[in-house]
């Protein structure tokens, strides 16, 4: 039971950390100063959510672990984040598409997680939900602006949506752990979010004059630690300093 809960908390934390890390790579390079600030802000929210979850994981784990242990001392195969979170930033449209699909999922996920029988998770969900509402507004508005902006932005945005689509299936399927945690009243079934996710995504893409991709083959593996080739580089960069100085505190 403890192990299940730990694993469940960690993989959500991993998603928030990896996506927050990706978004922080934009710092100083955004398309407009105001957008730089918005992206940094959202990145900070994701990282803040990951910290709350890692701290809870440490409490559940009970082996004198810290939030930094999970972020800096685990290997690629230990990370349980959704694949979509680790995709490289690409151009601004790719970054927006990635966030948009994830934000719709987060919004629905946290809306349900606030009712979790686990009081800590419920509290984290409540705090996160406030932030995610803003993230969703930000990414959805940009999908619409870029989709219904110029011919060039429309083409770029459609391409981004098509490219990332294959990573969205994972957001809406359950593995054994999801099913078990849901049975205990702690976790949320991703599959239960499916209809609402499609409706929200479709409404925004319609307004953006973009087409829902037809591809129905979806990549999976994130939750069981089978990642894209991108994650290894992200972790190598993120973890190098604490690993080089295992005795140090910072």
């Amino acid at each position: 039971m403890t192990n299940d809960l730990l694993k469940y908390v960690l993989r959500r934390a991993d998603s928030e950390l990896v996506l927050g890390h990706r978004m922080s790579e934009w710092c100083g390079h955004g398309p407009e100063l105001e957008e730089d600030i918005a992206l940094i802000n959202i990145s900070l929210d994701h990282l803040g959510q990951s910290r709350s979850l890692y701290q809870y994981a440490a409490a559940v784990d009970g082996e004198a672990k810290t939030e930094d242990h999970y972020a800096f001392q685990r290997n690629e195969r230990d990370f349980g984040n959704f694949l979509i979170c680790e995709l490289p930033n690409g151009h601004y449209g790719n970054t927006i598409a990635r966030s948009f699909f994830y934000d719709v999922h987060s919004l629905l996920f946290y809306e349900r997680l606030v009712h979790s029988a686990d009081k800590t998770l419920a509290a984290i969900a409540e705090k996160s939900l406030k932030e995610v509402k803003y993230h969703f507004r930000h990414s959805a508005e940009w999908v619409i602006r870029l989709g219904d902006g110029t011919e060039e932005s429309h083409a770029k945005m459609q391409e981004a949506i098509d490219e990332i689509w294959t990573y969205t299936g994972e957001l809406l399927t359950d593995d054994e752990l999801d099913i078990e945690m849901n049975k205990q009243g702690i976790g949320v079934l991703n599959s239960s979010l499916k209809d609402a996710w499609y409706n929200k995504v479709e409404a925004v893409l319609n307004e953006a004059t973009l087409k829902i991709p037809e591809g129905a083959y979806f990549q999976t593996g994130g939750k069981s630690g089978i990642h894209t080739e991108h994650l290894g580089y992200l972790l190598a960069e993120m973890q190098y300093l604490p690993r080089q100085h295992p005795e140090a505190t910072w």
Binding site: G28, H29, G30, P31, E32, E35, H91, Y92, G93, I144, R145, L146, D148, G149, T150, E152, S153, K156
Partner: peptide, 16 residues
């Protein structure tokens, strides 16, 4: 580079 790479984004926002 930030300005040039973001030009299409700013253009799109203005057009929209």
């Amino acid at each position: 580079a930030a300005k040039e790479n973001g030009a299409w984004v700013r253009d799109a926002a203005a057009a929209y």
